[in-house]
Amino acid sequence: MSEFPEYLSFKFGIYVADIVNWLIDNFESFFDAVRDLILWFLLKVDFALHWIPWWIIIVGVFLLGWRIKKLPSGITYALMLFIVGLFGLWDQMISTLSLVLTSVVISLIIGIPIGILMAYSNRLESFMKPLLDGMQTMPSFVYLIPAVIFFSLGTVPAIFATTIYSVPPVIRLTNLAIRNVDKEMLEAAHSFGSSPWQILTKVEIPQAMPTIMTGVNQTTMMAMAMVVIASMVGAKGLGSEVLIAINRIDIARGFEAGLSIVFVAIIIDRITQGIADRFRIPE
């Protein structure tokens, strides 16, 4: 058996650990502030979603599906939610939704401006592109490590990891969309003496909106894909149900929770895609 010589070693991890420790030591109050902010937002969302009566949510989803797609879609989505309720997982589903919603909102707040800056700066784009590629190929588990280090256990690190994992599509597509705005249209906007802000808000963002919405859809789906993994650091919801079922080898419980996740994912996907289609501008 051939062995790699032991004297050739480079303990890169030590330096990373040093940097992380240094960050924690020096930016503790910063991380605390971020934690408080995330928590505050999450609690609001969670409270609001738990407060709405279950049947209103079902009717709401039915109406959305009907208006955005068609009547059978509305019925199907409503039925799916009803089944989740029958499984006794309504409460967990709402928790999962709050987590996903919070992560998506944070992703958009971070991702859209970064995407816009990237579109404006070739240098930033060539720096960000490999980074985004890396983020998307990285196994999602990996994000749990810094999340736990910075925010310990609970829902906040789950949201942190979910956000990092799901932010690349919206950045990427915002950048692409802004760069692809028709050149002559931009010239027209400039020729009327628009300020940079007017160009951005009156021309570029409206023109980019359909593509950005596709990014929102993808980001949401990626956040959904994180829910089981996020539960490993302590987030409550459908994800933790699956996790518990795995640990106990409880097939029935695992199946119900898994199916519920699939249902919720389908509903969110179709509805956000429908909304994205609404934004499409006919040429």
Binding site: D182, E184, M185, E187, A188, A189, H190, S191, F192, G193, S194, S195, V203, P206, Q207, M209, I281, P282, E283
Partner: peptide, 21 residues
């Protein structure tokens, strides 16, 4: 320059350059 473009000069484009939204 912005004032000049706003007040003195305007342009019409080959492919119209209309805002499709």
């Amino acid at each position: 320059l912005r004032k000049f473009r706003q007040e003195k000069i305007a342009m019409v484009f080959q492919h119209f350059g209309l805002f499709s939204h």
